[in-house]
Structures are given as C-alpha cells and as structure tokens.
Design a protein around this nucleic acid. Structure first.
Lengths: 223, 223
DNA sequence: TTCATAATGATAGTATTACTATCACAAATA
DNA sequence: TATTTGTGATAGTAATACTATCATTATGAA
C-alpha cells in the first residue's frame, strides 16, 4: 500500500517521485530546510548532503522557491487527505470541525505510507517557512499557475464545514484561513516568541487547540 | 513638531535618523522593498538608488535582515503611538478595541510628522514582508536582543484592552496576536489570493474590519 | 542483442550577492 | 590648527544561483 499525492506538473522540471534521486531530493531538502532554515538552504549544500551535484538538483527543480512551494503544496494535499480520511464518517459538522482543528494544530507523526517524506519535519517547515511560499512578488504569477491550489482547496473544505455548522455565518473562508494560519502561527509564537501567546508556560499544543475551538465556536454560535 | 520613534540600538551600526544619508537609506529602502520585494532587494541596488556606495549602506546596517527588522520595529512603535493617541480619551474598552482594529486594518496615510518614512508604503511592507522578520532560525537570538519588543509591546497593549472588555477571557494575548496577524494576512489574501477570504469581490478593508470585529466580539461575549 | 534514449556524474564557467578592507577627502569639533 | 567623524571611491573575496557541456551508465523498444 502506498499513498501518492498528485502534484502540479509546473512545480518541477522532472517529477521527483519517479526516481531515486528525485525522492532523495525531497527527503533531504526537508531535513536540511528544517535544520538550517530556508534562507541558509542552497542546492549546493543539498547536493553535497545527497552525494550528487548541484546540476543534478537543477534538473528537478528550477530553484529553491519552487521546491519550497512544492513541499508546502505536498503538505496541504496530504493534510486534506488526512482530513477527508478522518472526518468522512462523521455526521455532526461541529465534531468534524473540531477534528479538523486538531489535525491542523497537532504535531503529525511520520506517515508510513509515504516513504521519502517525513511529515513531522515537513509540518515544522510549513510552520516556520510556509508563508514564504506565497509572501513574494510573484504570488500573482504563481497563483495563475495554480501553485496554491492545494492550500485553497483545503481552505474551501474547512470553509464548507464551517457553513455546515452555521449556514448564516458570513465569513466562512476568512475564518477558515484564520484557523489554518493561526494553528501554525500560534505554534511558532509559543515556541519562539511566547509572550505573544497565552501558552508560554505549558507549551502544549492542546492549549492552541482549545484557543482555536473557543475562537471558532464563539463565532459560529447563532444569535 | 516632529515625531521620533525610539529604536533599539543593536539594530543598526550607526543611527540612520542622525544623518542625511541614514534617513535616505530608510526612505529609499522602504520604496525599493515595496516595489521589488524583500528577496530582490540588495544593498547594491539601494546604494545606486540613493547615489551612494554599497559600503556606505553597510556602515549603517549589518545586513538586509537587520534593516527589515528595523523597519518593522519602527512601524510597530509608530503604530503603538497611533493607538495610544487615538484611544487615550476613550473610556469604553469595546470602543477602544474597535478603534484598534480599525487602526490595524486600515491603510495608513503618510504621517507628516515623520519626514523620511512613508507610513503608507511601510504598512504594505509590513503586510507582505513583516513575518519574514521573525520567521527565521535566528528568531531566538534576535528576540534575546529585544528586536521584537515593539511588536510584543503592541500585542500586550491590545491584550490588555481585550481583558478590559472581558476580564475572564482566557486567551487575551493569543487573540491579540491573532487580530494583528489577521489584519495583515486577510489584507494580503484579499489582494493576492482572494479565494482564501470572503472579500474577493469588493476588496474593501471595511470588510476585513467587520470580520475581525465579529471574530473578536463573539469571543469576548460573556456566558 | 542492439540501438536509441533518458538519467546521472563530473567539471567548468558566469553574473550576482553579500560582504570586508583600504585610502583619500571634506566637514565638523576641540 | 589638529583631530575626529562621515562619506566616496575602489578593490577584492567567498558564496550563491544559476547554465552549459560532455562522458558514462542504466533502461527499454525494436
């Protein structure tokens, strides 16, 4: 059994899933970006880490920005699969939404079904570097090429569950993007700038979940 | 009359406010970063834009990261002043908080009191590039040196107003950082990835304000 | 089995970036 | 008047972000 996330072909020059080297590029880039941060990450270092050459990496990805977008898109695609999988048997939209919040805010375990991707590290990358995928001047171009479709799809899914909870709620999409972003930002703040949160002492993800639940379900309360 | 924001001395090598060249560095860096984005921004281009040399810039700022942190810190300091100024005569904390949300989410006009800083452009920079000031591997080091104090102070101010509204509310700081971040992220999404928001058609900041007000005051409602 | 093609490795080279260093000059200051 | 301070001009270096070429190896179709 194996899980494959279908990726936008414009994100790479050669599909990294289709070769050993490609999978190594994905695997080691996740490790390196997590370890040293995206700014310090270069294709040269990645090549050395893998034991190939810089040119070898460039055959798969145009540049490191595209690779970052690839990784985050992969993550959002994977997460949407997780959400579908863990909520498809649930009827009550409130329970569903709580489940989604948990999946967004919890540390993920490494998924055995995806050999070369360490989801736990990738989750950390999405927290620390994810916004850099779209906070650029090329965001318009990238968006035209559908690079952010997985993120937008996930947001739409969450937005729809929100509407199921309260069909009259006026800001389902904005609330969805708020939940998604804050699940990550509050985590980053908790661990790095704790005075921006109320979780500085305990540093428990469960508290982030409690905060998000409170935020969301106060908003969705009718009346 | 002149408004001066007191800045952390560790952010620069020479205080840019104290010389003509320094003020030009600040002024032109704001223009260039706004125009081309932070990634494409280099000290060489900045020097050419000003009509000085690269070495000249390095005498003021160690590197472009410090300059970005300087600019964002300046903005948060300025914004806190604006908030103090516009809310100090208000008694009702609910009105106060609404005022704060408006100040956070609205496009700012260029403040005449600060000659070399174009607050309107700087606001755009904080929206598009602001998170990059702390989403780095050095965030811990930078935080130890108090680089993010203005941001944290602002967050504390907002958190306290939240507590005035509802002393029993459990997440004042997290809600404060959520408001601040979302005032900017929803703006960025609205203009660049509109399907992540509910403001795609109108593209009005007033809608972001309405969303944030709804979000915040549902959460603070007692019961 | 053979021929063609595709993927990789090895190496080289370029323009730009991110600095550091040095020296000369002008203005302010003591 | 001597001295410090800020600026301009120039040079230089290591690293980054690529592009190009050629030889070798693996794959797979005829």
């Amino acid at each position: 059994m194996q899980l494959q996330i279908k990726m936008n072909e414009a994100l790479f020059l050669r599909n990294p899933e289709h070769s050993e080297l490609g999978r190594k590029i994905v695997q080691h880039s996740i490790q390196l970006i997590d370890k040293n941060g995206f700014e310090a990450f270069t294709f040269k270092k990645l090549a050395e880490d893998i034991g190939t050459t810089e040119a070898g990496i460039y055959r798969y990805f145009e540049n490191k920005h595209k690779l970052l977008v690839y990784l985050t898109a992969w993550y959002w695609g994977w997460l949407e699969f997780q959400i579908d999988y863990h909520t498809n048997n649930l009827r009550d939209p409130v329970i569903k939404l709580k489940r989604v919040i948990k999946l967004l805010a919890n540390t993920v375990d490494d998924d055995e079904l995806t050999g070369h991707v360490n989801e736990s590290l990738l989750h950390q990358i999405v927290i620390s570097e994810g916004s850099k995928a779209y906070l650029t001047k090329q965001v318009g171009e990238d968006n035209k090429q559908q690079f952010f479709k997985p993120y937008k799809d996930l947001c739409a899914v969450v937005g729809n569950i929100i509407l199921e909870c309260n069909p009259k709620y006026k800001y389902p999409k904005s609330l969805a993007s708020t939940i998604i972003e804050m699940a990550h930002f509050q985590n980053f703040f908790m661990n790095n700038l704790p005075s921006l949160t109320d979780f500085g002492t305990a540093k428990e993800e469960s508290e982030i979940i409690a905060f998000l639940n409170d935020l969301v379900f106060s908003s969705l309360k009718k009346g």
